[in-house]
Design a protein around this nucleic acid. Structure first.
Lengths: 151, 151
DNA sequence: TATGAATTTTAGGGTATCCTAAAATTAAAA
DNA sequence: TTTTAATTTTAGGATACCCTAAAATTCATA
């Protein structure tokens, strides 16, 4: 029944999700802008997502997510956050981290995502946060600095 | 001049690279098998790569990489290795790590790749390998084990 | 060296995603 | 309320990558 949602469809769902967090419903224009495409393309994709049961949509009307659509959007968003934090820990500049999280949030095996998630939690949320984790991070920072200087 | 090589083209170049490491030249059949496509598709892609100057190719003849093609293939392979090691450190099962490295090796910003590379080097090749790095890894392993048990 | 098997190529299609330009609809302003 | 502006939709195309089936070529061996 549920064909595997394409990467791009996930993008659209997340985009619509973001828009409807501040606007009640998303207009085609908004979606096109959020996804960086022309309105005609947005219409085409929204129709597809509607056919597949991920969004509520009628011609010339606003777009909102169905429960199924919302579920996917939230999962994608969560993955995105994980990767953003991972790249933050690894000292990737923020703007690049944002862009690349967007790449990483799709297509990886659930098991891989689980391990990335654990890693991030382990580093940033461990209740104990043992000293050597902190020291380790400092050490890594130092390591990067040294490398950067010698190039 | 040099249009940005598509993700799939990179796949083909790396595939051809791997084949020519053991066979002098790659046959269409080999490439198709390596990439998991039909021979007709392989021909189509090889012709494209030839047009763009990445492979040496003539009808019914073997395929090899040009210097430009080889350069790209090696870069992709290096990235691949980095990600494989990264996922190994993060305790992702080997088969999944292999598959996902293949996803990760494309499209990430050079800066992100650099940080992943540094991280991997820092963990696995640091000349000192301070005790707390080892301890940290053990701790992470323990953390994952605990989580797995409680689910 | 002739011929059947293997390989490669061509021809013709398909899907996903994007685009431009023009038509249809809705919203806003005079 | 009529006219204009903004938005949305349709129509027609493009590209990248994949396929099947059939034709062309090469290879291996009888």
């Amino acid at each position: 029944m549920s064909s595997p949602v394409s990467r791009r469809s996930e993008d659209y769902l997340r985009g619509i999700y973001e828009i409807t967090r501040r606007k009640a419903f998303a207009r085609i224009k908004d979606i096109a802008k959020e996804l960086g495409v022309r309105p005609s393309t947005a219409v085409e994709m929204v129709r597809k997502l509607h056919r597949e049961g991920f969004v509520v949509y009628e011609k010339y009307g606003g777009v909102t997510l169905t429960p199924r659509g919302k579920e996917i959007a939230e999962a994608v968003k969560e993955r995105h956050e994980t990767f953003r934090k991972l790249l933050e820990i690894l000292l990737v500049p923020e703007d690049i981290a944002l862009k690349d999280s967007h790449v990483l949030e799709h297509q990886l095996d659930p098991k891989t995502i689980q391990q990335f998630t654990r890693f991030v939690r382990f580093i940033s949320e461990a209740p104990e946060r043992p000293k050597f984790v902190k020291r380790w991070i400092e050490q890594f920072r130092e390591y990067c600095r040294r490398e950067a200087d010698s190039s």
